[in-house]
Write a protein that binds this DNA or RNA. Structure first.
Lengths: 198, 198
DNA sequence: CAGTTACTGAACAGTCTGTATGGCATTGAT
DNA sequence: ATCAATGCCATACAGACTGTTCAGTAACTG
């Protein structure tokens, strides 16, 4: 008796309706009635489950993040060196499956706070990872790790966003990850086709 | 008789009020009355100038973009190689002067569409620049220029966002640009302190 | 100074919100 | 199969915000 079937049905329908509609018209343009209508649910029922539409949105994205976290955990444990390998690949795969939701979140829809939080968390973790790695290998960073972390996160995010927004994905996930790895190792100058400088 | 002084006064006050309030409470939380109250202007006057609050926001950001464009033009002409040098520096300076507005825009406040447009425009221009440069120097890109452009823009934007959000700027603009240049030339691996791979 | 133009304050209908209600239908457990 | 519990529905309501209109007043330009 974990949960009443009706409850589950309503919640699911409302979540799905939200995603559809945000994609069609954008979050701010939506009214609660739009959502309940699409979900084929009474407006009163909406308020029985969620405080307002931002609440619904918050829960939907929170679920997505939890799911992502669960899928990422083993990949992170595997890849001792850093994040750029398996974890990113795993994220791209997740993004492929949940494409609609990823698009919405990455567009910063719904005041964009879930996205900001996620980015900041990533950036902090990454900066820490960079520092730890430098320590471990007894090397001195040539660039402020804080800045470097922002660059890294911004980069991954930009690629993810671009990849998810394409109508027909021009590159498979594996290919994208390979390019990102090359880029990290050898720099953008090399990537453009030039020989590395002296 | 370019413009009535009262008109100018009202518009300015409303724009300034918007910026203040968005920073304090976020765009979506604001009502038109909040804005007119802060600006000390009648609500009816607001509608004499702007269709709604998104209209006001759009104009304010459009002005900012125009200003940026004017400041960037000479810098772009100067730096024949690409964007990473003078233009970025100039943008950072502009961002320092208009810090509040930059913060708002970069947070994707107000449905974030102005930001998206700007980013997409940058990405397209950058991709084109990369292609042209490769052609000019007769080298073959080792990574899809489209992806590379997204990476570059995402990177600059992340840094800019980080730089503008800091309470006390930890690095001067010149320093940031230097680091970005190094990063572009030698890659993140090098930046972390490691010797370049074979 | 005079004519023009912008601002003000008030009022209006319309939309959306969030809450409350009592009757009805589905559900899960016995 | 039955029953008590619980979620759903339709409806209604006050309150907030929107966008428009208008007549009176003040400020500006030339």
């Amino acid at each position: 008796m974990a949960e009443d079937r009706r409850t589950r049905r309503s919640r699911r329908a409302l979540g799905a309706a939200l995603v559809e509609l945000v994609l069609e018209r954008g979050f701010t343009a939506l009214t609660v009635e739009d959502i309940t209508e699409r979900a084929d649910v009474a407006r009163a029922t909406f308020y029985a489950h969620f405080r307002d539409k931002e609440d619904l949105f918050a829960r939907v994205t929170a679920d997505l993040l939890t799911e992502l976290g669960e899928r990422l955990a083993p990949a992170v444990a595997d890849s001792a060196v850093g994040f750029t390998g398996k974890p990113v690949l795993e994220m791209l795969r997740h993004a492929r499956e949940e494409r609609d939701l990823y698009r919405i979140v990455l567009r910063g829809e719904g005041d964009g706070k879930p996205l900001q939080m996620f980015v900041d968390a990533c950036a902090r973790a990454t900066a820490e990872e960079f520092r730890a790695r430098a320590e471990r290998n007894a090397v001195k960073p040539r660039i402020d790790p804080e800045l470097l972390a922002r660059v890294w996160v911004g980069e991954q995010l930009a690629v993810l966003r671009w990849w998810v927004e394409q109508d027909a994905p021009s590159l498979p996930a594996e290919e994208v990850v390979r390019m990102l790895l090359d880029l990290a190792m050898r720099g953008r100058y090399w990537a453009s086709g030039f020989e590395p400088p002296a």
